[in-house]
Nucleic acid binder design. Structure first.
Length: 907
RNA sequence: GGGCGCAUAGCUCAGUUGGUUAGAGCGCUUCUCUUACACAGAAGAGGUCAGGGGUUCGAGUCCCUUUGCGCCCACCA
């Protein structure tokens, strides 16, 4: 007899790397119907997820842990369901983030700036850096158990993906959907690049609102001291230098008379017109608005309407440029101070006041972003947005949870052209070349001459593309597009796009737009959005607050399964979750529970011997407990399936947890211990234990892959080494490849088994409760007499089980249909229709028994009253018959209980 | 300004076709080192489901509204 000894506690530290290696070397992460191999069958449905590519510079945080857990769950589930399942991994070059990190690194280690190194050398260094550290993040993702096909790993700057980027750019250009020109864009002075609207974050801050006088130009009449002026307010006085008009509302009585006249720009002395525009609000501020078209989007729009000149006053570092007169060369904030001081001296200042406003800041650098006129590349987004809008509206793409569809619509309906050029070095360089005559050559392959004048003297555009331009192609570029590769043909479109709602616009919407534009298909049919992870009190995690939970530390302390289970079960679609280490600890305990239940089952298998095997030939039929645990398992499989289909993964996990811990471990395993004492039930029971564990491990596997795989291996070995007939055949090598459980029976077929078992549980609990209340020593076996009415035979069959679970003395346990006389000196319990007498005379004080019974009677009568009232109301006529029937049954049961309690009191 | 989410036990949260005695984990009280597990087992205490109104035979669940907290979009100088 082989014995399989397992350690008392689940050792995740030694298990996880070993199990991961087992999977990876076993090739289980590969789609079994891999089109690159032989045996490709297009009739088999693929299931595909493209990983949201983490930044190569990234270090694992809980956001990664969240999406990996979620996607791995989806992937493992579908793999077990028999889909040809592919999860494409990879990483993103993350233009700004990576460039900043490498710059910082070079400054620290070599004390050189990127400008000193030059573009070519800097890019080379960044590649070196990527080669050295780029695998860090993917290795951390492996630690989470991600079952990606690593042979298909991609990087956004790979040759293939770069080719896809070029193809996309050129196609858009040829269609006239890409253009270049000077526009007002968001400029990040710290990073010295343009950024898109999405990369600007607005924060509410206290600023100063500066009020000053725009003096009317001297028309020759009045003295300068009494000359009229228009009061104007601004929070950015330095932009006065770029003013090209003052606007007032056409109906404003105060200023009407000045319309068409000119005012004088302070210090600079330029004359600018006073114009009328309905945009100006008469109620707000002074009712007059200074117009700086070069540095404000609204002013820019007004300037367009009125044909005003546009003056830029800032350079790329946000210093005042040559248009700023005496302030040239000064930083924007310095110039603000100086100009204001000078205006004060000139008597042009009215007042300053504190003002709460929203300040635009760079998402990356955090510094204040300046709207500036700059020549950039743009995507004409409207046609793309319309297609993307339609795809969700007509249901080709479904967003979970649904409410985000509205958010998505709203964004796309109000979208503005996308600024795609960045003044960075790390990224996809714009595939456009210029000759000395400034002809443009836009090409898929690097050209050698100008396509217009054939000049050989050409140079490529200095800018690179927004990182999200290449990420937008991710679902198909990773599969080989623009080539019609086998992967692309078979796996595209992908299935689910799972990611955080925070990148719905950045990424998801852009993938949909580009997917439709370039491939003519939706890139995925379902978008599942998860929430953000906050600390245990709902605060955003941040280094400054010191409340950051590091997933690597958590995994070190409690294991990957514990972290995964916590994230999966603690979250609902689209809602943020609060994470605490306490929760992870609780789930570490769950992993340990699984382990130990498994140990028990394995030891039970080991304990079988040949003699037991022979006895099985005339095995008894299934016990109530066996039928019950199977009925519960069936119910669970059905519920989990329904929940998975509706993306309620958390609820599914909770139900599996509940089943495994309460039903299986707490009840069935305890009963099994009793059943196994009977030789004729032993093998039967071990088989049930094994099968339920088997099914449980399958259901748990997508949530807690490591402990289930490890246990599966041990269980499998124990079964192969055992004498159990039949069960060993078709036992899959690994649970990752095992088939997902399917329900066998229709719903509701096990009703009576479930109610009968519930009665047993009630009885056991009531007796335990009584023992605890009366302080009966736990080791003490006590006698009991049951008057069980119609339940007598059922309970009779469970005598041994009830006795052992409730601590009764089986030899002094009587079960009758009814008793001719009620036993004296005993405590009576009434559970439904069953009366139980426990002779505890002499052991405990029976004095307050009467009040206990009275209390129970009172509660029962309250229920009777409630139900009678209910059933005499409209409820009886209007509610469905089945619902009414259930309530009638309850009422009858309560009435019987009340009768029994009354007769106890009368005794 | 527009939109969305949340408010359920001391804490953190489940509760998705409305079904009538509202659940879990942690924490708390009492007991038990019973041969799978003390990372455990058993028994228990604890909630007018934010307030108000409505629909319905029936509301934590649907509708309206108030309050508080959070988020997104827009950006009136």
């Amino acid at each position: 007899m082989t014995k399989h000894e397992l350690p008392k506690a689940y050792d995740f530290k030694s298990t996880e790397p070993r199990v991961y290696a087992l999977w990876e070397t076993g090739g289980y992460f590969k789609p079994w119907n891999d089109p690159n191999k032989k045996g490709f069958d297009p009739n088999v449905k693929p299931f595909v997820i493209s990983i949201p590519p983490p930044n190569v510079t990234g270090e694992l945080h809980l956001g990664h842990a969240m999406f990996v857990s979620m996607e791995d769950l989806m992937i493992r589930y579908h793999r077990m369901k028999g889909f040809s399942t592919l999860w494409v991994p990879g990483s993103d070059h993350a233009g700004i983030a990576t460039q900043l990190m490498v710059e910082r690194h070079l400054l620290k280690t070599e004390e050189v700036t990127r400008e000193e190194l030059g573009r070519e050398e800097f890019i080379k260094r960044t590649w070196d850096w990527k080669k050295k550290y780029g695998s860090m993040i993917t290795n951390q993702i492996r630690r989470l158990g991600a079952s990606c096909d690593w042979d298909r790993e991609r990087f956004t700057l790979d040759d293939g993906l770069s080719r896809a980027v070029r193809e996309a750019f050129v196609r858009l250009y040829e269609k006239g959907l890409i253009y270049r020109g000077p526009r007002l864009i968001n400029w990040s002075p710290g990073l010295k690049t343009a950024v898109s609207d999405l990369e600007v974050e607005y924060s509410e801050e206290e600023a100063t609102l500066y009020y000053f006088k725009y003096m009317l130009a001297d028309d020759g009449k009045g003295e300068s001291a009494t000359r009229p002026y228009i009061p104007v307010a601004t929070i950015r006085p330095e932009t006065i230098l770029g003013d090209t008009a003052v606007a007032v509302h056409p109906d404003d009585e105060r200023y009407k008379k000045y319309i068409g006249k000119t005012v004088i720009v302070p210090i600079l002395g330029r004359e600018i017109p006073v114009i009328a525009d309905e945009y100006v609000s008469m109620e707000f501020g002074t009712g007059a608005l200074k117009i700086t078209p070069g540095h404000d989007p609204n002013d820019y729009a007004i300037a367009q309407r009125h044909n005003l000149p546009i003056i830029s006053v800032l350079d790329e570092a946000a210093r005042i440029n040559e248009n700023g007169g005496p302030y040239q060369g000064q930083d924007r904030f310095e110039a603000r101070k100086n100009l204001w001081a000078d205006m004060k001296k000139a008597g042009l200042v009215i007042k300053e006041e504190k003002y709460l406003t929203t300040i635009p800041r760079s998402q990356r650098g955090g510094e204040i972003v300046e709207p500036m006129i700059s020549t950039q590349w743009f995507v004409k987004i409207e046609p793309l947005a319309e297609a993307a809008l339609a795809a969700v509206k007509d249901g080709r793409i479904k967003i979970v949870p649904e409410r985000f569809e509205k958010v998505y619509y709203n964004w796309l309906e109000n979208i503005k052209d996308w600024c795609i050029s960045r003044q960075l070095w790390w990224g996809h360089r714009i595939p456009v070349w210029y000759c000395e005559k400034n002809h443009m050559t836009v090409a898929r392959e690097d050209p050698t001459e100008c396509s217009t004048c054939h000049s050989k003297n050409i140079h490529q555009d200095e800018d690179v593309l927004d990182t999200w331009f290449s990420s937008g192609l991710w679902p198909f570029s990773t599969l080989g597009w623009p080539d019609e590769t086998p992967d692309y043909k078979y796996f595209y479109p992908t299935s689910y796009m799972e990611t955080g709602y925070d990148i719905l616009f950045f990424w998801v919407a852009r993938m949909i737009m580009s997917g439709l534009e370039y491939t003519g298909q939706v890139p995925f049919h379902t978008v599942y959005l998860h929430g953000l992870i906050r600390d245990e009190h709902g605060q955003k995690m941040s280094k400054t607050k010191g409340n950051v939970i590091d997933p690597l530390t958590v995994m070190d302390d409690f294991g990957t399964d514990a972290l995964r289970f916590t994230l999966l079960v603690g979250s609902t679609p689209g809602n943020d979750m609060n994470l605490s280490v306490k929760k992870v600890e609780a789930n570490r305990n769950f992993a340990n529970k699984i382990w130990n239940a498994g140990r028990f089952v394995i030891s039970a298998i080991d304990s079988l011997d040949t003699s037991a095997k022979q006895k099985t030939q005339n095995a008894t039929e299934w016990t109530l407990a066996d039928s019950w645990i199977w009925a519960r398992m069936e119910q669970l499989i059905r519920d989990v399936e329904r929940l998975f289909q509706t993306f309620q993964y958390g609820e599914a996990g909770r139900q599996i947890y509940e089943f495994f811990w309460s039903d299986f471990a707490d009840w069935y395993v305890e009963i099994a211990k009793e059943q196994m004492k009977n030789d004729n039930m032993k093998e039967q029971t071990v088989i049930t234990l094994t099968r339920i564990l088997d099914m449980s491990l399958r259901l748990l596997h997508p949530f807690t892959p490591f402990v289930t795989e490890e246990l599966w291996g041990h269980l499998r070995q124990a079964i192969l080494d055992s004498q159990i007939s039949g069960i060993a055949q078709d036992w899959p090598d690994v649970v990752i490849m095992a088939r997902w459980p399917e329900p066998h029976e229709s719903e509701g077929s096990d009703e009576s088994i479930l109610t009968d078992f519930a009665l047993i549980q009630d009885i056991v609990r009531s007796i335990r409760n009584l023992r605890a209340e009366k302080s009966v020593a736990p080791s003490r076996r006590i006698a009991a007499i049951f008057a069980a009415g119609e339940k007598t035979s059922r309970l009779q069959s469970q005598k041994q089980i009830i006795a052992s679970l409730a601590g009764l003395d089986e030899s002094h346990l009587r079960m009758e249909e009814s008793l001719s006389s009620k036993p004296n000196d005993s405590i009576a319990l009434v559970i439904g229709t069953v009366e139980i007498y426990i002779p505890l005379a002499g052991m405990v004080d029976l004095a307050n028994e009467k009040s206990r019974l009275e209390k129970e009677l009172k509660e029962t009568e309250a229920q009777i009253e409630r139900l009678e009232k209910l059933l005499s109301s409209d409820f009886a006529n209007k509610a469905p018959a089945s619902v009414v029937g259930k309530e009638r049954e309850k009422l009858a049961a309560f009435k019987e209980t009340a009768e029994k309690l009354k007769s106890q009191l009368d005794r």
